[in-house]
Design a protein around this nucleic acid. Structure first.
Lengths: 212, 212
DNA sequence: TAGGATATTGAAAGAACGTTCAATACTATG
DNA sequence: CATAGTATTGAACGTTCTTTCAATATCCTA
């Protein structure tokens, strides 16, 4: 049972990640393809065969590396959490007192999300589909809470508001606009080209907590 | 091949619609169940058998009435568009000059959405999943454009802004808060009960169009 | 009441899905 | 070089999905 050598296997896959994807491990390529597919067509809507195809691997390799489809999702979500944590860590490293303030961390996270639009797409879906028992949003909220606490300790965040308030404010500010922008885009794009405004309308989202 | 009479078949289904669901036609019960399932578990995530079970019918009846799963989805979306149109029509009927103003129509739509939370859930998903070729958001935008135009003709809407601007503003105002509230809820709920604020934080969303 | 049209059922077909697994290729360590 | 461990493949399996369809029930009209 002869089988052809697959020499250029890694070269025929879409660029799903940020690296050049040519010298990524099969495991990383599968994870990237999973992020791309889940963010684009949803978890239930993507067959494992589509992920294997995009990653340029055989379907069996997914189970070998991640155990199951759910295992792959867990790996994708852990990778997302890592990206958030890394963005905050970088912002801190660049700050004078090794603790960045709100603006610095917001900027770092915004930059990371801009570089990884698939993360935004994935989170948008997760927000809807993961209502029961799933935990990605909760994990990010916990991460945000640690960030808020460390900023409080560093004296760069006010302490006269509740911690919950601050976490909600931070997360909404970071994600809300990104979540809602597709609605604006789809509405604008539903008009004929000559009627569309030159610049897309921009959203402003604020959070107001009632007297506590 | 005797088969038992299913006398009380219609009584064992969840209340997905607004009517008492006891004297709805099979077609309507299937449509309601489809809306419920699609909004809750997503289009790809819901088997037709789940819809048939919730509606209390055999699986074959779905194909008979709607042709296919996609046909059912089309029917659900047309029904949603009808609800929006009906809300606007009612607001107009109650207005003095038979053309309600912005506030009146906003209130009518908000009331309709509050009475049909499944529509909100469905739209939230549609906004993400229907990026390619699908048209529900576009249809609602067109409906909103007709509304804006009629208000302009009736002299109850300003004409110094572009029509696109007005449509975007209306739709974001109607839907944006509803879309983003789950994020606030999940973040707040990720905290322990004793740390949660008494009242949920409230969102304010504004649209600003750059100089045109 | 007779008969055609429509509604409804549930089994069957055919495709697609996730998972498993034996076989093969690769890599590193002795 | 040998050999153990890991990576990788793709076919096979059992399940589940959508669609089809013949059979039966119900409704409507003449």
């Amino acid at each position: 049972m002869d089988m052809p050598m697959n020499a250029e296997r890694k070269s025929r896959n879409a660029d799903a990640g940020e690296s050049s994807a040519i010298d990524l491990t099969s495991r990383a390529r599968i994870r990237n393809a999973g992020l791309h597919q889940f963010a684009t067509t949803g978890f239930a809507g993507t067959p494992l065969r589509a992920i294997a195809s995009e990653a340029g691997v055989a379907i069996g390799l997914i189970s070998h590396h991640f155990g199951s489809k759910d295992g792959l999702r867990a790996a994708v979500e852990s990778w997302i959490v890592d990206q958030f944590a890394a963005a905050i860590t970088e912002a801190d490293a660049a700050a004078p007192d090794s603790v960045a303030d709100t603006a610095g961390r917001d900027a770092a996270v915004a930059q990371m999300l801009k570089a990884n639009p698939l993360i935004v797409g994935y989170l948008r879906r997760e927000l809807l589909e993961g209502s029961a028992g799933r935990t990605l949003i909760a994990r990010l909220a916990r991460l945000s809470l640690q960030s808020v606490d460390s900023m409080r300790s560093g004296g760069v965040a006010s302490t006269d508001r509740s911690r919950v308030d601050q976490v909600v404010t931070v997360m909404i500010r970071q994600l809300g606009k990104l979540f809602l922008q597709p609605l604006v885009d789809q509405v604008v794009d539903s008009f004929s080209a000559d009627e569309r405004p030159a610049a897309k309308p921009e959203l402003t989202i604020t959070v107001r907590t009632p007297q506590n």
